[in-house]
Amino acid sequence: MKKIGTIILLLISINIFEQNLSECGIDNNPKLTQTESEFLTEYMNDEQRKNFDFTNKKVIFITGNSAQQLGTKSEYFDKIKEWNKNGNKIATWIVKLNENERKISGGYDVIITYWVKNLTKKRKRKIITEIKASR
């Protein structure tokens, strides 16, 4: 009987996870919604998210091996949805911005990378200045 309860709880939590994911990335506003914040907290492990609180945060999305391409929130969540269909996760990490970097970028709090192998300090500085110029 205990196993049945555990299975039911697991199925319910998977359904909630899927439902939350369907509500993520429906726009390209860099500020995360509450649902997106909650989803990312569950999606990323502690090492990936470094205990970062995504609530009401403004995010820069970066992709490509060397972090050479600005992404969008909808593209990011579309990749998650695509990989999630097969029970997989995308390679994703966060890079917190310090106070000065937030100011230079125009108020962004964090960079979320996906499919990035290497984000150098030089590239990070360039991203921060590029994002201000493009927004």
Rank of each mutant, 00 (worst) to 15 (best):
D78S: 13
T55E: 05
I94G: 05
N56F: 14
S74M: 13
Y43H: 03
N86G: 08
I90Y: 03
N65W: 13
F77R: 08
N56V: 03
R49W: 02
A67W: 14
E36F: 03
F52L: 04
Q34S: 06
Q48N: 09
T63S: 15
F77N: 01
K96F: 10
T63M: 12
Q69T: 12
T63R: 14
A91K: 05
D78C: 06
V59S: 04
E36M: 01
Q48S: 07
K57L: 07
T63Y: 13
S74N: 12
N65K: 14
M44V: 01
K58C: 08
Q69C: 11
Y76G: 06
Q68F: 02
M44C: 02
K81T: 04
R49E: 11
K96S: 14
V95H: 08
S66G: 09
R49F: 02
Y76V: 11
Q48K: 13
V95Y: 05
L97A: 04
G71D: 08
G71Q: 03
M44P: 00
I90G: 06
N45H: 07
F54T: 02
D46Y: 11
V95D: 11
T35A: 12
T41I: 09
L70Y: 07
E47I: 09
K89P: 00
M44H: 02
M44N: 02
T33Q: 06
D53N: 15
A91N: 15
K85R: 12
K79D: 08
F52R: 10
K57T: 14
T55W: 08
A67H: 12
N51H: 12
F61Y: 15
Q48H: 04
T55R: 05
V95M: 01
F54L: 06
A67M: 13
F52T: 06
S74D: 10
W83K: 10
Q68Y: 09
Q34M: 10
W93A: 02
G87I: 07
T63G: 00
I90H: 09
V59L: 08
I62E: 10
T55Y: 10
M44E: 01
T63A: 00
I94L: 15
S66E: 13
S37W: 07
F77I: 09
T92D: 04
T72Y: 06
E82R: 11
D46N: 11
K50C: 03
K81V: 01
N65R: 09
D78I: 09
E36A: 01
D53V: 12
L40E: 02
E42A: 02
V59W: 07
D53C: 10
N45V: 05
T41N: 13
F54N: 01
D46S: 06
E82F: 12
F54A: 03
K81Y: 14
I94F: 11
E36V: 02
E36I: 04
I60H: 03
S74Q: 12
N88I: 01
A67K: 11
W93G: 01
L40N: 02
F39S: 03
K73M: 05
K50Y: 06
